[in-house]
């Protein structure tokens, strides 16, 4: 079983649309894992049935038991996040400001503060329109994606892939360069970098590749909207050469991307011409290299 991870560093490059197309082409040979939990949009294209739903807990949050509180104010004094305001004469934890550091219960003279596990969202195991399984998650407001949630989604996908003897786990990776993307990459056999030829696209590609390189994972790149700026496209290509990253394909700027999405379809279902052909070849290439 191989784990293939798609990442982009920056938002809006078409990563999710491309990953969904690859997943569609992979059909029943793959298990899909959506680790782009901050903007989890994959489900809009894959029609999951939300078959199994489970709560996900991460981090802690303080809660003051008012019956035991003697209003001494020690907790509010030591809190660096101004998370314990006085409301109507009572010390109350503001859940959006509390970082769960656990300092306040340690100074409370009456042990009136509990640290509770924070329910940050739900995760799902779904059957999608290709008949295969997708593991995905939805975070609540103000909840941060974390290495833990990403690891959890991926582990579940891998467990299912092993059980059902699937060849590939295809992962829509997290954005940015922080802990969630580190967790997305850990264990990957091959990384697909999706980028666009804009000043910010190239900048973010370089940043995220630093991480891929550190983990020593072979990578290939898809340049989306390549004809939008031929000059930056050329810069990206020379960066790929210099770093020995395979250039899997270049896709043209094409409004069929949006048209497909509007109908809740992947690009390869919607487009029968150019885009379809390039993506089909890309998937074949990826399977071959990975």
């Amino acid at each position: 079983m191989k784990e293939i991870v798609v990442i982009s560093g920056k938002g809006g490059t078409g990563k999710t649309s491309i990953t969904a197309s690859l997943a569609y082409l992979g059909g029943k040979d793959i298990v899909l894992a959506d680790c782009d939990v901050d903007a989890a949009d994959m489900h809009l294209l894959m029609q999951p049935d939300f078959g199994q739903a489970k709560d996900f807990y991460s981090g802690l949050i303080a809660e003051i038991r008012q019956d035991d509180c003697i209003q001494c104010g020690k907790c509010a004094d030591i809190c660096r996040f101004d998370a314990i305001p006085v409301i109507d004469g009572k010390y109350i934890v503001d859940p959006l400001s509390c970082e769960g550091c656990g300092y306040c219960p340690r100074v409370c003279p009456t042990d009136a503060i509990d640290m509770l596990d924070m329910n940050v969202g739900k995760w799902y195991v779904s059957t999608i329109k290709t008949g295969t399984t997708m593991v995905h998650a939805k975070l609540g407001i103000g909840a941060d994606n974390s290495g833990k949630l990403v690891a959890h989604v991926k582990n579940e996908a891998k467990r299912i892939a092993e059980e059902e003897d699937k060849e590939i786990v295809l992962v829509d990776g997290s954005p940015g360069v922080g802990c969630p993307v580190v967790s997305s990459l850990s264990g990957a056999k091959f990384v697909v970098l999706v980028t666009e030829p804009t000043v910010s696209g190239l900048h973010d590609l370089k940043r995220v590749y630093e991480l891929v390189d550190k983990f020593n994972i072979p990578a290939g790149c898809i340049i989306n909207k390549a004809d939008l700026n031929p000059q930056v496209s050329a810069e990206i290509e020379s960066f790929l050469k210099q770093e020995n990253i395979g250039h899997i394909a270049s896709l043209p700027y094409d409004e069929n991307f949006t048209a497909a999405m509007t109908q809740g379809k992947t690009i390869v279902e919607y487009d029968e011409n150019n885009l379809n052909e390039i993506l089909t070849q890309s998937w074949a290439k990826i399977k071959q290299i990975a």
Binding site: S146, G147, K148, N155
Partner: peptide, 8 residues
């Protein structure tokens, strides 16, 4: 370590 959000 599965329960560690950051810093595993």
């Amino acid at each position: 370590v599965e329960n560690v959000a950051h810093g595993a």
